[in-house]
């Protein structure tokens, strides 16, 4: 069963609903290490991306590009350029196809990881969203089952608790960031979980 443009529209719709539901919890996490608005940015970004994708026609790449532009223009912030770049990279992998094998979502996860790393100039271990994206991408490329990819992302996010932020707004906290989750890694693990649902064939 292939992953079609309708499936991609459904995925963006789920991501928008998920971020709306998690908004306040993500803001509360961000209040501990940042400025308390991460949930707002993710909700606004994904809702705008969903609207842009829903209204777009064309290939998988066209839809990813529409989602990137929608997210970026709605949000700015840090998550705007990071997710916009991730979606643009995903679109490049998906290419001008109306559908692709579901297993190609593994390369999509890896491409999104690459986009986040490049735009954010970050490496794993710096207490950022990359700490969820990177283990998930490695698991995905290594052929892990969707549940294991989701778990890798979630474990990666959980591991940010033991990290001292080395980049971004919370870097200036130094050791005071220890013991707190990185909100960007937590929301990334949620995004990855929904992509993995699609990889399993559940929408």
């Amino acid at each position: 069963m292939e992953f079609t443009t309708d499936d991609l529209k459904a995925l963006f719709h789920r991501l928008a609903a998920r971020m709306a539901a998690e908004r306040d919890a993500l803001c509360a996490l961000d209040g501990l290490v940042g400025d308390g608005d991460h949930g707002i940015a993710m909700e606004q970004g994904m809702v705008a991306a969903d609207a842009a994708v829903a209204g777009a026609d064309g290939s998988l790449q066209d839809l990813f590009n529409a989602g990137a532009k929608g997210f970026l223009n709605a949000v700015g912030a840090s998550s705007g350029p990071l997710y916009a770049t991730a979606f643009l990279r995903a679109g490049k992998v998906a290419g001008p196809r109306p559908a692709m094998p579901r297993d190609d979502l593994r390369q999509i996860i890896a491409a999104m990881r690459d986009g986040v790393a490049q735009r954010g100039k970050a490496a794993p271990g710096m207490k950022t969203m990359l700490d969820a994206w990177h283990p998930a991408a490695e698991a995905a490329l290594g052929g892990a089952a969707p549940d294991a990819i989701t778990a890798a992302a979630r474990d990666g996010a959980e591991a940010t608790r033991t990290m001292v932020a080395a980049i971004g707004r919370s870097e200036r906290l130094g050791a005071r960031s220890l013991g707190h989750l990185d909100p960007g890694a937590v929301s990334a693990a949620m995004v990855i979980e929904d992509i993995c649902r699609a990889l399993r064939g559940q929408g």
Partner: peptide
């Protein structure tokens, strides 16, 4: 937006 960089 509030406390968020403008997009490009």
């Amino acid at each position: 937006n509030v406390f968020a960089s403008p997009p490009p």
